[in-house]
Amino acid sequence: MPINYSAIQSALQEFVTSVSNVQGASIMSPDGLAIASSLPAGMEEERVAAMSAAMLALGERIGRELSRGQIERILVEGEKGYAIVSSCTEDAVLIVLTDEKVKLGVINLEVRQLIDRLRPSLTFAKTNVA
């Protein structure tokens, strides 16, 4: 089964419009190539993809080095809101952008549920052509 881009795209769009305080979301491969996004105007998908992949890889590495166990998410907290990067599957990374008023407990739960919904459409079928 190939990746269902339009299903992922609509799931992201729905997430961004229906969850309060969320401003954008994007999915990329762990090596930083964009898969699907619903981002604020003027934000470049390619750049977001590369930066999210770099952040996750570095965060996971720091987590391992400093014995933090399994890494749940990488968080950037700014004056104007959060950028939250999580690993979805072996083949996909998710970044969610929120405003500063978001409740972290709520958004963490929403993100986890989104990942659960997306997971089936995000695993590249390892087609074993003999």
Partner: peptide, 10 residues
């Protein structure tokens, strides 16, 4: 050494 290599998909 510390690396941040990921599987290449491009």
């Amino acid at each position: 050494s510390i690396d941040t290599d990921r599987r290449a998909t491009d």
